[in-house]
Structures are given as C-alpha cells and as structure tokens.
Amino acid sequence: MNLLEVRGLTTAFMTGRGEVNAIEEVSFSLKEGEILGIVGESGSGKSVTALTVMGLLPQPPARVAAGEVVFNGQNLTRMSDRDMQRIRGPGISMIFQEPMTSLNPVFSIGDQIMETIAAHERLSQADLRKRAIDMLDKVGIPSASKRLDDYPHQMSGGQRQRVMIAMALACNPKLLIADEPTTALDVTIQAQILDLLMDLRDEFGMAIMIITHNMGVIAETADRVLVMYAGRVIEEAPVAQVFDRPLHPYTRGLLECVPSLTEDKPRLVAIPGTLPEPARRPPGCRFAPRCSHALPACSEAIPGLELLEPAHTVACFRAQELAPA
C-alpha cells in the first residue's frame, strides 16, 4: 500500500480577480522509504501542493476545490483540524525554505524541540531534554547539550536548517516534506544537508518529499521525480528516466538550460518567455506559448497525463512522436 496517495488535487485561491487555481488535478503517490522529488520553477505550485497535503493553507482564501489526500489509509482532506493536528508531527512533518522565519526567535532551540515532542508524547522534563539532545546530535550539531539553550539568532543558516530538521524528526514522522530545504544555503552547506536527509532516510526508512527548483538537488536525492509547470504535473518518472529520456518539451528545456560543470557550451539553450501567473494561464497546454513544438491543436485542450513508458507518464500531445528513439 502507498503511504501517501494524492488524487486529482485542485487548490484554489480567492484573489482580487476572482478565484484562481494555484494547482490543478495533481496526482501522485509515495511509498515508505521513497524519496519523491518535485521540481518546477517558482510559482509552479510546488509549495501549494505541499501545504495542501499538510492542511496548512489558510481557508479562506485557499480552498481544496477537488481531489483528495490519503495518508496511511486516512482521507486528510475530510479530516477535522483536531485530527489533522495529530497527524502533523508523528505522521507528516515539514521543513521550510527559510529557517530563520520558521523558528521562533524568543525561545531557545531546545525549548522549541521539546515543545514539539511534548505535544505528542508524555515524557518527563529530563527525558524530553535527552530526546532533544539526541535529535540535535543526529542532525549533526556539535556539542548538542551546550547548544540546546541557544537562540535561533545565535546559529548559522545551516545550523538553523539542521535544527528545523531536528524538530521535524522529533516525532519520528513517516513522511517528511522538505520545501526547498537548501535554497537559502551555500553549496557546501547544501551538500551537508542533502547528505543528512539521505542518511536519515536510510536509517529510519521514512519517506521524503523534496521540493526544489534545482535539477541538481533532484539528481542527488530523488528516487522518483514529478515535474510541475503552471500548477499541473506535466511529467512523472524514475529519476534516471527523467535525466536520460525526458519526454516533455519543458522537462527537456529545464535540463538543457543549466550550464555544465565540465563541458563548454557556446550558448545556453533558453526557454523563451516566462511562467504565466495563475490568473493569466493560456488555454490548452500551459506550456504552448513557450514550446517550440507547439501546434495549433495544443492550445485547444489540456493534455492529460498518459503512461507512455513503464512508470513514466507525461502530459503532452506530441510526446510519443517527439520521443527519442
């Protein structure tokens, strides 16, 4: 059985110009111990997907307009706030891009970790402290017992992200959602944090949903990849497939436009134009105005996800004919 099952999820926001869908018909699943990478440019709906799964979007303005999220056999989209709170922590937990704003500046990091544990387990103060030190140790904070009483501003960006991970792991979640966990960090620190996430997966067998706009982070961590564009999933495949045989023109463009670390390219292959805002999405295939393979028919209907190769789905009318031999 799949740990997480997302089916046809559509989340809408009420805005000044009426209701717009931030994400549309998003479906995917996640097994225990699996790392699913979600990649897409900013505004493609990655965070909204994550926050909808967590039930963390303020309603209103947000509204789950269609679809469902099934976690461990329970339908989260129909769950009460109280029940949802019990899922967050031991069930699913989340780390965010900006570790400074997600930690409370007026409490020590130890207090914040202990509070997270105490919300779900009845432990003595001494045991709580021990668990918190354990967690900090596990995420690689040196002399954890001394740092427990430090405040967030006394730690570096990388350390804060480690603390966030420690808090997220404090209740042994089955699923960890990491939304751009390394975007605010330097490369040497990014490498450490990605290693840490993989180590934790190997050790505890939890599933991880890693959200990023960086194909490199995907290459480093993911088992399976979901590519999003303008609120929709446009391709899904095992990681090697995505890099070796990308079937959607957008995925191909995304891979081609990053320069190489080893080869010289005279010129980058850019995708013209920009990602449309939700209220200004074109009709039909969302990528059509930027797609070099677009045909008039592409703007008439939205292509659905189709299984083109084993475990490899793609939403493009011309995927079959354009697929490399």
């Binding site: 436009c257 320069p259 850019a270 920009t274 990602l275």
Partner: peptide
C-alpha cells in the same frame, strides 16, 4: 528561474 536565467546569460 533557470529558464529565464539562461535567457539573461545569453
């Protein structure tokens, strides 16, 4: 974004 980044680099 990477796709726009490539345009500006070019």
């Amino acid at each position: 974004d990477v796709s726009v980044q490539a345009q500006i680099v070019n």
